[in-house]
């Protein structure tokens, strides 16, 4: 692969795809942590409350 003239394009494609996927994952996880923290401030147990209810 090191001798392929288009290695740079291939590596760039995989890096961009990884960056976009990582951004989506991290954004959702940060949002989740923030929501859980705010819900705890209201004294709401969030998902665990629903799990117990069932």
């Amino acid at each position: 692969m090191n001798h392929d003239p288009h290695t740079g394009f291939i590596v760039a494609a995989y890096l961009i795809a990884a960056a976009v996927v990582a951004t989506m994952v991290v954004a959702i996880l940060i949002d989740h942590r923030s929501l859980k923290r705010q819900l705890r401030r209201f004294g709401d147990a969030g998902e665990s409350r629903d799990a117990r209810r069932r």
Binding site: I28, D31, H32, L35, K36, Q38, L39, F42, D44, G46, E47
Partner: peptide, 9 residues
């Protein structure tokens, strides 16, 4: 799941 929590909040 986040959207449901946001609405609850």
């Amino acid at each position: 799941r986040n959207e449901i929590l946001r609405r609850r909040l």
